[in-house]
């Protein structure tokens, strides 16, 4: 550990960095953002959920206080990854620390569990936050095997097998690489 020596009878430590975990969180945010973007093209239930969101809604996930972030905007009833430098987000979900964000983004914790364990806090309309959780639950069914999803959600959303596998292939080959 690096620390600054001084003549004082105390030491001052600079804030450290967890670069490895932050890099993994950034990659996970990228995959999640692209997956949401892609699934909002083809999943009818996600589209129904998004219908209830205001147009141009800006949602930001951020690791507190200055960690990686993921911004998503609603455009034409699709959620797309975007930059949010121009205005304050309509909804901000802060994940309280890098360790918790790492567990969340590597699916060791579920979205609801993050709120139960005070690992995340929310600024914005809770109605939309709950809608987002339902969207994320469906995304997880496309991305992960059932046994893993069962650990992360209270009840695995019903998506028939063919739609599930077609959706998974679409996310892997078009969604995550190209956002389509």
């Amino acid at each position: 550990m690096v620390f600054i020596m001084s003549d004082h009878p105390y030491q001052t430590f600079p804030a450290g960095q967890r670069r490895g975990k932050k890099a993994i969180i950034r990659i996970a945010f990228f995959i999640l953002g692209r997956s949401i973007q892609s699934a909002s093209h083809f999943d009818k239930i996600i589209q129904t959920e998004l219908n209830e969101w205001p147009d141009s809604f800006l949602l930001v996930y951020k690791v507190f206080p200055n960690g990686p972030e993921l911004a998503l905007c609603k455009k034409n009833n699709l959620l797309k990854r975007c930059k949010h430098t121009e205005r304050d987000p309509d909804m901000l979900i802060y994940i309280k620390n890098v360790e918790y964000a790492f567990k969340l983004m590597t699916s060791q914790k579920g979205s609801v569990q993050a709120f139960i364990e005070h690992g995340a806090f929310l600024k914005g309309d809770v109605t939309i936050a709950l809608s987002l959780i339902r969207i994320l639950n469906r995304i997880q069914v496309y991305l992960y095997p059932r046994f893993l999803v069962k650990r992360l959600v209270k009840r695995v959303p019903k998506i028939n097998m063919s739609s599930r596998y077609i959706g998974r292939l679409r996310l892997i080959f078009l969604g995550i690489p190209f956002g389509l």
Partner: peptide
């Protein structure tokens, strides 16, 4: 009701 914050903390979906 399914968009009320309390629903997230209910044990059953």
């Amino acid at each position: 009701a399914i968009n009320d914050g309390a629903i997230a903390f209910n044990p059953e979906e």
